[in-house]
Simulated scan of single mutants.
Amino acid sequence: MSEFRNAQAAARFQAAYDHALAALWPGPRTAIDVLGPYGTTRVHRTGTGTESGRPIVLLAASGGNSLMWHHHLGQLAEHHPVFALDPIGEPGASTQTAPIAGGADAAAWLDGVLAELGLTDAHLVGCSYGGWVALQHQLHHPGRVGSLTLLDPAGFNGFGFRFYAWLIAGGLAASAPRALRPRLARAVGNSAVLEEELMRLSRAAMGFRRALPVPPVLTDEELRRIDLPALFLLGARSALHDSAEVAARLERVLPSARVEIVPDAGHSLPMDAPDLVTERILAPSRT
């Protein structure tokens, strides 16, 4: 199971998390702890009442939590109730008590959280690993959510050398002198390195042992079972996969889906193109 190495590592991360939450979260929020068979999931709720708009549920990327959405929360919350999750098994305010061994477990965890929150017909947004979890949820528990926005989702390619090199290059760029970081961020294709609070939080998370399944490549049969409105946003410079190949496959296998390749954006889409991502999330949420 995922956990911190020791109490000191947990305390160090908690201090960084609390600092980032105070610095980044726009406006009021309510923290909700949802107890389930895999542990306790922290959910941050913000935005208007459920009668004002379709609920939006946000799933973070690998190694992330609800704070990665801070650029988008203000606009999303103007007309929608927003539920940003700290995923079980990732460094955040959630606590894991049982292993998540595969896609079925990840889907069951998410479905339990949505059920406890009383959410149906929500618009589910997932980034990278969170996108894979969103797809697994639809495969194993269809009918709970009403639409999907998937930001450069995992599950279309293995994690190869290029992806790990991108991660390492981003870590090195984030450690460089502040004046050099914008140029390095452009060079490595990762705007996340400019997010000082998130990078501080990421460094504090080095004391966290992540133990979640590696996403297998989705089969054509699985993709054909995605039977709801879905938007796939792919970074043109993604280090995870060849976005043109992914787009061509989706257009062939899942023609009902909308697919968009975002120019000059990489795998960290929420930071590379925040305004466009917010606009695309809001579009299906209005229906």
Rank of each mutant, 00 (worst) to 15 (best):
R162S: 15
D264C: 04
A104F: 08
V125N: 01
Q136E: 15
A11M: 06
H71D: 08
W69P: 00
A185I: 04
V125H: 01
G146Y: 07
D227W: 09
H267T: 08
L180Y: 09
A9G: 13
V133R: 05
G171H: 09
R29G: 06
A154Q: 13
V34D: 10
L269E: 04
G63H: 11
T48A: 10
L231G: 04
G235K: 04
A205T: 05
H71T: 00
V113T: 09
N157L: 13
L234I: 12
A11H: 02
G53C: 04
L151I: 12
D264H: 13
D111Y: 07
A7G: 03
M206A: 13
A257V: 03
A230M: 12
E78P: 00
L172R: 07
P263G: 07
I281E: 00
L228H: 03
Q14C: 10
G171L: 12
P255C: 10
P182W: 09
R181G: 10
S94K: 03
R178G: 09
P270I: 01
T46A: 12
A239Y: 06
E116C: 06
H79V: 00
Y129L: 14
N190S: 13
G126D: 02
F83R: 01
A211M: 14
R258D: 11
E78N: 00
L135V: 14
R183E: 12
R200K: 14
F232K: 11
E195K: 05
V34Q: 10
A60K: 04
P263L: 03
V113L: 05
G235A: 13
R249S: 12
G130T: 07
S285F: 00
W109K: 06
